[in-house]
Simulated scan of single mutants.
Amino acid sequence: MTDALDAVARLFVNDGLSEDEIARQAALYGPLADDVRALIPLAVQTRAGDDDVRQAREHLAAAMELLGRTKEDHPFGTRFNDNGNFRVWGNAVMGLRNAIAPLHRINHDPDGRVWADFHLHVGFEGPAGHTHGGVSALVLDQLLGDAARVGGSPGMTGTLTLRYRKPTPLGDLHGEAKLDRTEGRKAFVTGHISGPHGICVEAEGIFIKPHWPVEDGRDRNQTR
């Protein structure tokens, strides 16, 4: 157990970067992730011929060789500076450097509600023409966890219960969540995803404050 906690601690670090350097890195790596993100639906939808596909793969191989020349050998983790600017750029839901991340920003209202408007492209398909149920769970897990954090009870997911009320379409969607109550180290949170025709998925989650340090209530969404 101690080894596991040590591993977590190594991925939760103050890297001491200045605000200017964080902004420079965001401007450099964010567009790269956007470019890779744009490739995902293209890989699904393209009807390019044999020669064009082979040529595209050659370009991609060259890009991978360039990007792989200097890289880290561990996850991005959670990084912050002396100003408390938290960065979770590897996060699968809202990481600035993660091309599969569907959320660009989670918004916070004064009443504690968190919400996000987002778009799910064809790469997130499950049932024909609709969002995969696991992707809905992925998004809601992030939103509910953020609501717990904003409510002053940050924690790790203990349970996540979903009710799929209707098929969730691909395209433009809205998600939101809010802390309901706390009991000791447990935060109870509710939320949902809605589409053009109303609520598609409802969720309830219990988030448990861990024994190792977690992010506090400061805004960590400024640069994703």
Rank of each mutant, 00 (worst) to 15 (best):
Y164Q: 05
E125T: 13
I206Q: 09
H121N: 15
R79M: 00
A148V: 11
V139N: 06
N81M: 00
D3S: 12
G30S: 09
G123H: 02
L138I: 08
R149G: 03
P110D: 14
I193E: 00
K209V: 11
A101I: 00
E21T: 15
A4I: 04
A148T: 06
G175S: 05
D34L: 12
D34A: 15
R218Y: 02
F207Y: 15
M94K: 09
H59T: 07
A9Y: 01
K209F: 09
D109G: 07
R24G: 01
P167C: 07
H59P: 00
V135H: 02
V150K: 10
G175A: 07
A56Q: 13
K71N: 12
L170K: 07
V114Y: 03
P41M: 02
F207D: 12
G68R: 02
R185G: 09
I100S: 10
T182E: 04
A99T: 02
N85D: 15
H130W: 09
H119M: 10
L11A: 12
T131D: 10
P110W: 04
H121M: 06
D15K: 08
T159H: 05
D117F: 03
E72S: 06
T78G: 06
H74D: 01
D172G: 08
R113S: 03
W115S: 12
L143N: 04
T70F: 02
G68M: 04
A61M: 08
R149F: 04
M94T: 09
I193G: 03
N83M: 06
K186G: 04
L17A: 15
L162M: 09
F12M: 04
D73H: 08
I193N: 02
D111V: 06
T46M: 11
G155F: 05
A101K: 00
N81P: 00
G158L: 08
T182D: 03
L144E: 07
H192G: 00
G30F: 08
P210C: 11
R105L: 10
E176K: 10
N221H: 14
A27G: 05
Y164M: 07
E58N: 07
A99M: 07
D52M: 11
V135F: 04
M94G: 12
G123A: 10
T2Q: 10
V93R: 01
F76Q: 01
A4W: 02
P169I: 08
L170F: 07
E176V: 10
N85S: 15
R181A: 15
E58G: 14
D111C: 09
R113E: 08
H59Y: 14
P102L: 01
M1F: 10
K71W: 05
E215S: 14
P154H: 06
A92N: 09
E65L: 09
